[in-house]
Each structure stands twice: as structure tokens, then as C-alpha cells.
Amino acid sequence: MDEQGQQRCDTPGRHAARRHGALLSGLVVLGLVSGGGAMARDYREPPRQTWSFQGPLGHFDMGAVQRGYTVYAQVCSACHGMKSVTYGDLAGLGLKESDVDAIAHAHHVPAGVDAGGHALSRPASADDHLLSPYPDARTAAAANHGVMPPDQSRLAVVHPGGVDRIYAFLTGYGQPAPPGMVVPQGMFHNPYAAQGLTAMPPPLHEGGVTYPDGTPATVAQQARDVTTFLAWVATPHLTERHRLGVGAVVFLVFVLILSICLKRRTWSNVP
């Protein structure tokens, strides 16, 4: 649609009119931002949500991120790992060092084998990663009807459909399957899953977790919070990045004004 529009405005008849740099660079920008080819989607289009972290000035609602971590820790982490993330990174949630250590110590990580070849483990430290609960991909798949639960470190970035789809998916269970769809044993229907089928059982339940801040833990609330947490984990420096960007823009605009003044004064005696 809009791609065709661009194609039309590029007919050779109008080339001559487009001589000037500004227009040409406009074209380059058009080429840059015009969307990719129409990819066939195999899931229902998720409703659009508004999130505080969207847009160039977006920031995380840290209360929601912290509640989302509660959901991740009590629910998601039973099957999903975040292998790029360390317990120490959780300090970014606003946790104190002692809290981070306590969380780490509550988990165990593999620590080689003993003399008899038996697997050993030790309490995790802040430098350890949030590993998948399964020792390897094959075991993970075998425990989940043949599908390995994906790592969640960057899920909110790489998942087609993004955070809106994650939220819609988490709240999208329990709808009747469309006529003609066969839901195999051990699979679940969810319109936001690929092909409408997922191997993940409905993870969230009314009051399934208890929030330390007293927020009522409805399914929608948990879904929203854990989605926010996943977005934070995928781009933990987003708020800082935006703050740095705004600061740099303000500073550079100031320098620009000064340098324009300087240049004009310098050039004022050139005819």
C-alpha cells in the first residue's frame, strides 16, 4: 500500500523535478523507514496496548517491573531461563545488594561432578546467570511436549508481535478453538500463538502470586507486569538511554546555537 505509493511517486517523469539535495535525502530516509515485505502472520493480530516504555522518551514503571519479577520468579522461571542475565543485574530492579545475594543464594547452579561422577551443585552468587531449569535443550523439549521453552533474555525484542502479543498471549487462553481446529493432547489453543497452538499450559491464575506491594494479582495485572518485566530485561538501560539522549540533545542544541553565532561572526566580513 504505502510501498506502492512510493513506487508511484518514483516514476521517471518526475526525476527531473527532484534535483535538490533535500528531496534526495528525503527519498533515502523513505527507503530507510519503509516497512519490510508483507510477512504472512500465523497468529491473531494482538490488540494495541499503551506502555510507558514506548516511544523515544519512554521509561519503565519500576513498580510494574518489580511485580513482574515476582511473577517471573514464581511462575515463568519454572520452565524458562534468562541465560544472558546475572543475579547481579537484578540490582537494576532497585534491589539492595543483600537482597540480590539472598535471591542468588536461594538458587543452585551446577558445579561439576564429584569423584564418583555425580553432578554437584552450589548456591548461586551474584555473578551467576539465570539459567534454564533444564540441563539441556533435549531434556527441556522432552518435558514440554517436544517444544523447548525459549530463553527470555531478549524475548520482548525478538518475539514477532512484541510486547502487545506477549500480553495478549498471556491473557488469551480459554477461548474455544475455532471449528475444524484439532487441539492435540498436551497442547492448548491460544489465538495469539503461532498456528493458534501452544505447548505452554496457561501459566497465570487469579491470585496465583502474592505481590509484596499489595496490588491485587488478577491475571490481567500479572500479565501486564510480567510483560513489563520482560521488556525491562530485554532493554534494561532504556530509561537511562533515553535520559542520556535527551541530555545530549539539549547540550548539543546549545552548542549548535553558539557555533552558529561564531560562524556568522567569522563570516560576516566575507562578501
Partner: peptide, 9 residues
């Protein structure tokens, strides 16, 4: 300016 807008915003 273009650079920081693209890198950070």
C-alpha cells in the same frame, strides 16, 4: 544531533 537522536532515542 542526528547521531545521538538515532543512538539513544
Amino acid at each position: 544531533l542526528v547521531f545521538v537522536a538515532l543512538a539513544f532515542l
